[in-house]
Computed example of a mutant assay.
Amino acid sequence: MEESNYESTMNILTQFQNLQQSGMLSSVENLKKENTDLIRIVNDISHLISLTQVDSMIDFLCSRFLEYFIPDKLVFLFQPPRKKHLRQYVYRRLVKTDENISTDCFSYIKEYFDQNLTQEQSGDVHLFSEIKDKLPQEIVDETITDINPLFVIPLIAIGGTYGIVFITNKINDSEYTDSQISYISRIFSILSITMQNGLHYESSITDAKTGLYTNDFFFQRLNSALSSIKRYNQSAGVLILDIDFFKKFNDTWGHLLGDKVLISIANTLKKTLRNEDCIARFGGEEFSVLLSQCTQDSVFKVAERIRKAIEKMVIYENNTPLKVTVSIGGVIIDHHEFLEPRQIFKKADQALYYSKEHGRNQSTIFKLGLLDLAKMRNNDFDFLEEE
């Protein structure tokens, strides 16, 4: 019996050695690795196509890169539809920075890919060294040298190249493996489509001049917030901002400078508020803000922070410094199942009217009282028309 077991063991060892010598075991291991890589890319692509916001797409890619490899620099440049400005995301070691890349850099590289590639090649990974000589030397010296990209990836739509991505060497200076390059190519070929869809969606819900949300989208978000308030007994706040004497400003300085004021206020609002807050341009010189998880005191503090930030803004016209102020009205929303967006907005508008009637450049926050709520419950909206 022992001799039989010994012979059996030796046969197994011989077969194992034969498999090793034939390369079959190595092939099996490679297949396992390829299968793991395939599962990873399928899972990542599935998650990527589920995202609708461009910022979320880029955040997701950075999180994946952080797990798989870390480039020293990662740069996204793209041109949103209907927008003149270039949208930029610059990362160093996958940490976002405030750096900006020359728009000329984007223009020249876009022109190169528009002339040499088709939409089917969107997301392809190119060695930057292969196109470096095709660019003006000053662009390479002034902009590209600081980035020092290893790869450049075009994002191409029907209308041509709308985005450029730079990826540098890894922070440990090791080379990218074939599987990593394959991953980059596959994920960016999908990103080129999802980002294009995301940009068009953002374009449909944002104001072309300021980049803020439209009032239609604002009411959609307010409806969603009301649903959460009812379900989870939460609270929220709505603010309305109106630029003081804006008609007089336009009549004095012209509508082009008036547009500059609107854009400056929009940028100030974005910097002052949280990412989860919804900011919209509601009318010509009116803006609205939806704040989540807040109290009457915190809503007032936010309103005052906004008001003071805008008061500090300076817009120049031929070296002449100009300033504007805003009046703000707001309302705090508690848990009441019969609230509707237009009711809430009207009450915030009353608070705005109070601020304007009492001197402007101030904030007023109302809280819906019991009488207001009773009238809402009974569909009696006369109080909404009171001044």
Results as ranks from 00 to 15, higher is better:
Met1Phe: 08
Glu2Cys: 03
Glu2Thr: 09
Ser8Asp: 10
Asn18Phe: 07
Gln21Trp: 00
Gly23Met: 08
Gly23Leu: 09
Glu34Ser: 13
Asp37Glu: 15
Asp37Leu: 08
Ile39Trp: 00
Arg40Ile: 06
Asn43Lys: 14
Asn43Gln: 13
Val54Pro: 02
Leu66Pro: 00
Glu67Ser: 13
Ile70His: 02
Asp72Leu: 12
Val75Asn: 03
Lys84Gln: 14
Tyr91Trp: 07
Lys96Pro: 00
Asp104Tyr: 07
Gln115Phe: 06
Gln119Lys: 15
Asp124Glu: 14
Pro136Ser: 10
Glu138Ile: 14
Ile147Leu: 11
Pro149Trp: 03
Leu150Trp: 01
Pro154Gln: 09
Ile158Glu: 15
Ile164Cys: 06
Val165Cys: 10
Thr168Phe: 04
Thr177His: 05
Ile181Leu: 12
Arg186Thr: 13
Ile187Cys: 05
Ser192Trp: 02
Gln196Met: 09
His200Gln: 11
Ser203Arg: 01
Ser204His: 02
Lys209Thr: 09
Thr214Pro: 00
Asn215Ile: 13
Phe217Val: 05
Gln220Asn: 12
Arg221Val: 04
Ala225Tyr: 00
Ser235Gln: 14
Phe246Gly: 05
Lys247Phe: 07
Gly254Cys: 10
Ala266Arg: 01
Asn267Pro: 00
Cys278Asp: 04
Val289Ser: 03
Leu291Gly: 01
Ser292Asn: 11
Cys294Gln: 06
Gln296His: 07
Ala303Glu: 05
Arg305Val: 03
Glu317Leu: 15
Val326Gln: 02
Gly329Gln: 05
Ile332Ala: 06
Phe338Leu: 14
Glu340Trp: 00
Pro341Asn: 07
Pro341Gln: 06
Arg342Val: 08
Tyr353Met: 13
Tyr353Gln: 07
Gln362Thr: 13
Ser363Gly: 07
Asp372Thr: 06
Arg377Tyr: 09
Asn378Ser: 12
Asn379Asp: 13
Asp382Pro: 00
Glu387Lys: 14
